[in-house]
């Protein structure tokens, strides 16, 4: 049996992408421990040429996009478009896709599923991240950012561990709610933004498969 492959993009050209990239490192380590072939497109490797080539040649079953987005596009390093609706969403066929980016679950998500993606999970409006600039050099110690990013890490880790998409989605959403409730007592600055992210976290396509079914 072929080794399962997991592709992740980690641009780092601004504060938000730097946080997303750093918070993804533990998932990469977990995948390696699980014997999964990790394709880590970090920094300037998060470009359209690399993404298209790796998706075509290695056909990873699980794809995670960290970065910016809009309703029709996922962007990579320095906001280069990686996947654009009407251009190359077919590259996501037969894949479980998770995109932590603004709005891409609005149009690109459902259209990718129509083009053959197994599932596309992400956000259908803006994704908000609140952070403490003084923690910028140690993003994993930023307790404010943790409220926003730990559910994302949980989703990815759950898929890597072989959970069904539905289980991963429910676990992640429950942690978002727990973090929201926690914020009401420890960080009310973040509450409104956490609540917004919960409302806009969406999953399109089949939610029954896990990576072991691919």
């Amino acid at each position: 049996m072929d080794k399962i492959a997991f592709l992740i993009t980690r641009p780092e050209h601004d504060e938000a992408t730097y946080y997303l990239s750093n918070w993804s490192e533990s998932s990469i380590k977990l995948a390696e421990l699980k014997g999964i072939n990790v394709i880590d497109l970090h920094l300037n490797k998060a470009n359209s040429k690399e993404v298209e080539s790796r998706l075509n040649k290695l056909s990873p079953g699980f794809v995670v996009f960290n970065g910016h987005g809009d309703e029709n596009t996922i962007f990579g390093h320095k906001d280069e478009p990686l996947i654009t609706l009407g251009k190359n969403e077919k590259l996501l066929a037969s894949k479980i896709v998770y995109s932590i980016s603004c709005s891409s679950a609005k149009n690109l998500g459902p259209e990718s599923v129509k083009a053959g993606a197994i599932n596309y999970t992400g956000y259908d409006k803006d994704f908000f991240l609140v952070f403490e600039p003084e923690k910028f050099s140690r993003p994993l110690e930023d307790k404010t950012a943790k409220l926003f990013l730990s559910p994302s890490v949980l989703f990815v880790d759950s898929i890597i561990k072989g959970n069904k998409i539905k289980e991963a989605f429910d676990k992640s959403k429950n942690l978002m709610k727990d973090n929201f409730r926690l914020s009401l007592s420890v960080d009310t600055d973040s509450s409104r933004f956490l609540w917004w992210n919960i409302q806009n976290f969406k999953s399109h396509g089949d939610v029954e498969p896990s990576i072991s079914h691919i």
Binding site: A16, H68, D70, F131, D189
Partner: peptide, 10 residues
């Protein structure tokens, strides 16, 4: 002491 990131907007 907090910053709010709104996707690619800034």
């Amino acid at each position: 002491d907090k910053k709010i990131s709104i996707g690619s907007v800034g």
